[in-house]
Design a protein around this nucleic acid. Structure first.
Lengths: 379, 379
DNA sequence: CTGAAAGCGCTTACAG
DNA sequence: CTGAAAGCGCTTACAG
């Protein structure tokens, strides 16, 4: 019964997707099976040196706990953000949760705070719970994470990748360039010529695309790009406030500001308020994202809608396919953005069109804000 | 080697926390072990009648998959919301994630949308992934959920329970009564006498407590409670807008409104805007929650801070204790709320103090909004 | 601190 | 559609 002739030659190397077993590790470490088990379970009664050796091997091979009797899916996917403090993250979470829940799969949510130690910790967790796959959101400084995950053979999809992914990892994004362009075309159409821009972190692909959209719109209208009107933010309220204040108090201020996120746009609202300027009469503001709060901020914010929940849903759908061993037909999905015109944008104070819009002279006044949403598809 | 004398009598009933095994189910269903396994794994090659019988037994016993070799924790807790569309939910999630991540445990996030079918689905998932415990947020209409979870012996803690929990389940909340009271005392102190109130759903404990706090404050100041000034909302922007509009356009409008959530307070902002009223000059507004966006809404919102992240963290800490078999020393934790005074509250237009505050006459003007936060602890 | 042994809960060919 | 058998990956007393 033991030593059965059916016992097959143990393969020396893991033969595919994270198939190392605790027996493999034990053999390589020159210890017994129970010892590896003890290390894995954080038992205290293991010699420090042994523990160290086993832990190294475990990490090196990207060991993942496997259910008994082989096979069996964990019915779990991991969703990793850098931070959880933005409403932006929830929108994506909503989309992921919906798809995954319907498939009877759980979504484990983590925040790694751009922190290597935290990523390491997450990696350990992901392995111990034997997650079926992972969705990385804004894979910021995580090339080592990508590498590690693919080494243990874990299906992966990335939302809003920091750069162009090197490997064949599926990525989901939005048409950021087109979105940025449509925002600025809208402002140009209203008569603005001095349009400020507050960008996102320059190392993110989406930030650069939005900025290029801004440039493209200006150039197509024959307006020269003035670098003094471009500031580098980080998507947060705070940076929108600080940089908005800079723009409004330095040199010749713009008549409109395009912010690369809704949160920064609301920071610009506050900057305007403190400068005694009224939105939109004295300053037009356009955001990016269309978070739920955008339509409830007085005045309701004109912004570029990014279908975050749909992006999450698409990512989840792709990942579920990958988990089932199917390869998705496209590796790069870009969902389209659309301009949503609300009350924060109007003609500039000294409009060339001679509208003579001064305080309160704005057509439409402050009424009917809620009914005014007019989404316009762009590209 | 088989039939070892060590084999112990199989206990007829599960002996504690969800200890039914697939062998138990097989015996009871009168089928073999592999058959139960097949049902569990959703294989198609099982007779409908057999499947039905096994499934019923599985549900009846609250079967939970156990890892091989016995024992072994899943290192997973479930966090269940009704909806994920409020920034409110993220704040709690942040607190939970932080504590749980540090402990090397994953947080599975779900939304059940007040839907029995969705809860059922979640229950199946929770069992299949063998979650170590669950945090229920606003256990709205879920007595059957509580019951089922405790039957399968799953550790449980409830945040912001709908009612007073019947059993010995630990609950986490905030000092809602004291918070409501402090908001209204603040408004009374500014000279307001006609103070409107927009409540949350009346079947929630926290809503009732805030309303009672409102009443208590008025009564202690000798101001009669006027039911015409009280409206029943549901915490959403929309209800704040609709009910705010009602309050401002019906009968003799209030000079201040206390809304039971920040989102409703911002809805009131919009209502005021559309009525041509300025906040705070013509109308003071106080919210509840202190969501991040509260300080970025022009004007920055005076509100009652509820430590949502801390509540999440406390719940997670308690749950982790329960999972380890320790019983928490207290079953009911109430974290304290505090009033955060910002720019949305000031003396009423016809203040009894003779401040003569009319448009623009407000001391402090519109400047220095960001630096003005002055948290005040209440009870 | 470690390993030989027994065992657990589950699953997948295989045969009918 | 179902069960007897073999096996998998892991763990926990037990003994040293």
């Amino acid at each position: 019964m033991l030593g059965s002739p059916l016992r097959q030659e143990a393969p020396v190397a893991e033969d595919s997707a994270g198939r190392v077993t605790i027996a493999d590790i034990a053999r390589e470490a020159g210890v017994s099976l129970p010892t590896v088990s003890r290390v894995l379970n954080g038992r205290s009664d293991v010699a420090a040196a042994t523990r160290r050796r086993v832990e190294d091997l475990l990490a090196e091979h990207g060991y993942r706990r496997r259910a008994a009797g082989n096979a069996h899916r964990a019915n779990l996917v991991d969703l990793v953000f850098n931070d959880l403090d933005s409403p932006w993250a929830v929108e994506i979470l909503r989309g992921v949760e919906k798809v995954v829940h319907a498939a009877g799969v759980g979504a484990v949510v983590s925040a790694v705070h751009h922190h290597a130690a935290s990523m390491q910790q997450w990696l350990v967790g992901v392995r111990s719970r034997n997650s079926d796959g992972a969705i990385l959101v804004t894979s910021q400084p995580a090339p080592q994470l990508d590498a590690e995950l693919r080494r243990i053979g874990m299906p992966l999809v990335v939302i809003d990748p920091a750069g162009v992914p090197t490997f064949d990892i599926p990525t989901i994004g939005a048409t950021n360039w087109a979105g940025g362009r449509s925002a600025v075309l809208h402002l140009l159409g209203l008569g603005h010529r001095r349009i400020g821009m507050i960008t996102g972190p320059p190392d993110l692909l989406c930030s650069r695309a939005r900025l290029d959209g801004y440039r493209a719109a200006l150039e197509s209208a024959g307006v020269e790009v003035d670098d003094a009107l471009i500031r580098e933010g980080d998507f947060s309220h705070e940076s929108g406030f600080a940089l908005g204040t800079e723009l409004l108090t330095t040199g010749r201020p713009p008549t409109a500001v395009f912010a690369s996120s809704d949160q920064m746009a609301l920071g610009v609202y506050e900057a305007a308020r403190q400068c005694g300027l009224r939105v939109p009469d004295d300053l037009s503001v356009v955001g990016f994202d269309d978070l739920p709060q955008a339509r409830w901020s007085p005045p309701p914010l004109t912004t570029v809608r990014q279908p975050l929940a749909e992006m999450g849903a698409a990512a989840a759908g792709m990942l579920l396919q990958l988990v089932q061993g199917r390869t998705p037909d496209v590796l790069r999905v870009e969902l389209s953005t659309s301009l949503v015109v609300r009350d924060s944008s109007t003609a500039p104070p000294q409009a060339s069109s001679g509208l003579g819009s001064d305080r309160g002279a704005r057509p439409g006044g402050s009424g009917s804000a809620v009914g005014r949403n007019r989404p316009t598809n762009s590209v």
